[in-house]
């Protein structure tokens, strides 16, 4: 039971990391109906912007650095959309997929050339710089590396770190902010209108080009903030987002490419599946006991399943194939109707 809960919590934490890439991806899909394979790298470069402003060049306040990083990432995203992607017809998938792959390569390479593919020490940690509320100094609480519940205070013996909680909570808060922007502001309404029907959006007086730029800017800013938040967890280095990209793709497709909240859910589901399924399978003793109890005593097989930890991408791919088989546009995606 304890292990189970522990894995659930680990899963949530990984899910938060995946959502950081998956949610902007969906935002960009909603704006320009394309998959941005460069999303992970855009988030990475955003995290590096924050790092530069917070430690290397200016030594700014971490929060200020994060805001500047968000602004720079947003500008970068707008520039990419305007110059490289707008000239293309988004319904022809191959060219735009290739362009985003090219951007992925270039950003990764530039980052690699500058920062040498090495992990940077002490990336800025927003959670540790949270304000003091008087009754509760959040920043200090987050810095507290002790385990949240020790075996004294909780009989289950869960090991939860303070900033894991912080990470999951801040992602939820970011999601809430995104909800407010998309559902409660005029700009958000216009964004949803453009993604629903571009032609009619023009007819109600929406400047569609500006809204596309807004979508990319929003996505990249969100990605940058998310990346700054998760960077202390997964080390800040130019390849930090490359392994996450695949999980994020799975998460985005799971929830449906045009549903932001579906992507967040998808992130958590992929994270949970990985930590729970892989956790149990690789736990050879546990697995052997289970198999013994149903009459299978095959040591080879147990060992083989255990080696699945070396292949952590397989469960999300199987999940993705299963979900898309039954719902070809993801769990919450809008169904498209083909016209002749």
């Amino acid at each position: 039971m304890t292990t189970f809960l522990q894995r659930i919590i680990d899963g949530f934490q990984n899910g938060a990391i995946y959502s950081v890439v998956a949610i902007p991806m969906v935002l960009i899909f909603k704006a320009t109906t394309l998959i941005n394979f460069a999303q992970g790298e855009l988030a990475m470069i955003g995290a590096f912007f924050g790092f530069i402003f917070a430690t290397q060049v200016f030594g700014l306040n971490v929060w200020l650095a994060a805001i500047i990083a968000m602004a720079l990432a947003a500008a970068l995203g707008m520039g990419i959309e305007r110059s490289l992607l707008r000239p293309f017809d988004p319904t022809d998938h191959l060219p735009v997929v290739l362009i985003t792959l090219g951007i992925f390569y270039i950003i990764n390479a530039v980052g690699g050339d500058i920062w040498n593919y090495q992990a940077q020490i002490n990336p800025p940690n927003l959670l540790h710089e949270m304000p003091d509320l008087g009754f509760w100094d959040i920043g200090v609480w987050m810095q507290d590396q002790t385990i949240l519940f020790t075996s004294d205070t909780n009989p289950l013996g869960l090991r939860i770190q303070h900033d894991s909680i912080g990470l999951i909570l801040s992602l939820l808060i970011m999601l809430g902010a995104l909800y407010m922007i998309l559902e409660k502001t005029k700009m958000g309404l216009a964004f949803r209108a453009v993604s629903s029907n571009t032609e009619s959006s023009r007819l109600v007086g929406i400047r569609v080009g500006r809204i596309l730029s807004f979508g990319w800017a929003l996505a990249c800013a969100f990605g940058a903030l998310g990346a700054i938040l998760v960077a202390p967890r997964i080390t800040l280095q130019p390849n930090m987002m490359a392994p996450i990209l695949i999980y994020a793709l799975a998460a985005a497709a799971f929830g449906g490419l045009d549903n932001v909240y579906g992507a967040a859910l998808g992130g958590f589901v992929v994270g949970l599946i990985n930590s729970v399924v892989l956790g149990y399978i690789s736990d050879v003793r546990w697995l052997r006991a289970r198999l013994d109890s149903i009459g299978i005593e095959d040591a080879e097989f147990v060992e083989g399943l255990g080696s699945l930890t070396a292949a952590p991408l397989i469960p999300p791919v199987i999940l993705l194939l299963t979900v898309l088989w039954f719902r070809p546009t993801g769990l919450f995606g809008t169904k498209t109707i083909a016209r002749v």
């Binding site: 949803r192 629903s196 009619s200």
Partner: peptide, 8 residues
């Protein structure tokens, strides 16, 4: 063909 926003 009306041109409403079907998802909204």
């Amino acid at each position: 063909g009306r041109g409403t926003f079907p998802e909204l």
